[in-house]
Design a protein around this nucleic acid. Sequence first.
DNA 1: CCGGGATACTATCAATCTTA
DNA 2: TAAGATTGATAGTATCCCGG
Length: 717
Amino acid sequence: MKFWLSYSVPQRHWVLENAKLHGAEIVPLEKQADVLLVDHARKNQPPGTHSFRFIERSIRAGALANLDDHAVGPASRVQRPVGSRMTAPKKARTPFTDADDQLLWDHVAPCMRAGGNWKGNEIYKQLEQLNARHTFQSWRDRFLKHVVHQRRRLPDQEAVSDARTPAVVFSPAELGAFSAKDASMLYVAARDILACSPADREVPWANFARTTSHSVHDWKALFNDVILPKYHSRARSNTAEEEAEEAEEANDKEAEEAEEANDKEAEEADDEEAEEADDEEAEEADDEEADDEEDAEEEDDGEDDGEDDDEEGTEEADEEGTEEADEEGTEEAGEDAGEEEALKTCVKCLTTHSHQCPNSLPRPEPVSPYVRRVGQFESQHTAGSPTPTVDSDPFSPIERPQTPPTLLGKRKRVHQDSNIEIPPTPDQEQHAATILQPPSPPPLQSPQLPHRASPPFIREREKGGGQQDSPQPTSPLMVSLVSDAISSFSSGSPTEASSDVDSASLYHFDTAPDQPANWDTAPDDGSPDFETAPTRRREDGAPLRTQPPVPAIDLANADFDLPPPDGGWDSLDDDDDDELEEPVLASDHRSPSADPAPDEATQDEDEYASWKAKHQAAYSGLNQDDVDTILHVAIVATSFNFDTADRVVKVMVEMYRAGKSAGHVVVVPDNIPGCWTMEDDDCLRSDHTGYLKRVRRKHGIASCEERITFLHDYNQE
DNA sequence: CCGGGATACTATCAATCTTA
DNA sequence: TAAGATTGATAGTATCCCGG
């Protein structure tokens, strides 16, 4: 127990010396002490302090006296009597640390979920009693202004993870001769294996047996006796919790959308006024919008803060977890590692081990036929003229404004932990506020656009001089894919509203219809896990070039952490080439090399043509260049899923119409399931755990895999 | 490079308004 | 009427800007 002795204590030196002589540890700073000793004779001693006579009595008695008997101040400010000056106003403000926020969240969130009065004072008074670091008003203020927007996860929710993750502990007894890595790998692949017919499973089992020291029978036994029970058990619990969470989020979202709608109406009126009014009024309106954006930014910063921490945790977990969590890792470590592995594994499967990697087994989810057709369809046209699409064109008329760095324009506060001893009160705890630096964006791999080999459905665009691969911006249309910025409010994405994004478009996007209220399937964990997508800042207000810088996935260099099966990936690889001409278990993965039947390709082509024609006709009143651009962006963003693209086009066209007078900034919506923004794609390609988790939560594992496949196919073209 | 003023941000507190 | 909610004032701190 460490003691701090106030300078007001009479005969302080004597007390100090004697205390030391009797083994007490005296610390120079109040913040370092467990017990604060003051002069009980003085009035207005701060709460939580004790009389120095505790030392005196203890020395005389030869044993520790009862500390509570020497309490001087009230336990907290909450308990002070009305009108009491016992607790002097805080002289120094106490910055909120992430730990504070977490504590706050942990304390209030259960009440919030239970429908309690989390906006009232009472709960914060209780919190102050628990932790007097901030006043209850401050706690409340902090929660209402910041933490509530972070939507952190409750501690118990941290345990919720996908059933595919190897966040399970295997006992050596049940594993027998198998390693935890083997079990973990199998656990990750369980979902896929289950999706296969028993016959289809034989080949990979045989491969496993061949590349490891275990027999087919052993592998099957491990899967049936150990993996499956754990998998089903976990899947059940996850499903139940996710359903509850989704229901709640749907409610939240409804409320938010209703709120948004109201705001929108008001803003709309303002907007119109601004347009019609003189310049001054217009400027005012702009200012207001700018303010709104700043507000959004603030909130997102808060989220990022939280996220940073999560991120750290995740990365820490990864370091240990990826390789060792299976054997010794904690639930948490295994989970994080597992989540990422699950994702990365799929990439790996798609890239190098599609035949044999257990993770490359067919997805149980229904795969959109369009996605498959795309690859086939695309490959049909690889021989065509290399017409650059808007995707690949840095000077494409499709603008893709980048979200500015989250902390752009924000000041970072570095609180110094001065060791200056100030005649303190307990309230004046000095603390070293650690300012968490936002994680540097993950090294995105070549943010290039997929160079599709001039599919016939992509309208040729004129190429600009000096930019051979880049069509000139022939259209005034600017399409922003920074859609996260807009819908972050509803989707929980922390990607802040970019001030670079034309505010009008933002506004209009908000009004866009067809936004399924139940789309955020991802649990909003503070979205802490939602990270601002890798963004670039648009400089000098120049329009950003957009369109799917759907970058090429650097498959060769991808660093995947899935623990390889015994024998290593290489062995599987070899076997692959030799024996698995037919990727039985990967049959559902659209192999880029799979040549589609000509008939099918033609059919696809016709389908696209008719889809395009349908929309061109529907929007014949608009600039056809712009319509074409929208159609292309939509179809790419949806991985050529025509149904989804229909909805995306509808939203984009409305945005386009609405934003026509405001600079033609159109934003690809990010809250339509199956619609991939640039940020989503960037996240998908990122090595950054947070980004991967974010996009995985947003779209789901299966969709992520499909998108990877799509981008892979698309890029290959 | 340094120091001082200006400015922005935000924790804290208190007064006031609203609601059950 | 009390509790909850809102609003505004105050002040500490960090950062920016500029002149020396």
